[in-house]
C-alpha cells in the first residue's frame, strides 16, 4: 500500500461521488459546477496514469471551456424570464 495507491483510491471514490451529485442535483448551475470539479479530478487520474498531454488538454478544455459554455447558455436563458 504505497502513497500512490491511497491517492488513487481517494480520487476514484471522489470521482464516483461527484458524478452522482452532478446527475442528481436539484439546480442546474450546481450540476454544472460538479461537472467542472469532476473533470478537474479526472486530470489527477490522467497524471497518475502518466498521460501529461491528455491531462493538460482536459484541464484547459474540460474544466474551463465546457463550463463557461454551460454557464453562458444558462445566463442567456435566465434572462428570457421564467425560472428554469
Amino acid at each position: 500500500m504505497t502513497l500512490i495507491n491511497i491517492v488513487e483510491i481517494v480520487v476514484s471514490v471522489l470521482l464516483i461521488a461527484l458524478a452522482f451529485l452532478a446527475i442528481n442535483s436539484k439546480t442546474l448551475i450546481k450540476s454544472v459546477m460538479f461537472l467542472s470539479s469532476l473533470s478537474m479530478l479526472a486530470v489527477i487520474g490522467f497524471v497518475i496514469m502518466r498521460a501529461p498531454d491528455v491531462a493538460v488538454t482536459e484541464a484547459v478544455i474540460g474544466s474551463g471551456l465546457v463550463t463557461s459554455l454551460f454557464v453562458f447558455t444558462l445566463l442567456a436563458v435566465r434572462k428570457a424570464g421564467k425560472k428554469i
Partner: peptide
C-alpha cells in the same frame, strides 16, 4: 506536453 489543441484553447 501540450501542443496545438490545448494551446489553441
Amino acid at each position: 506536453p501540450g501542443g496545438g489543441f490545448p494551446g489553441g484553447t
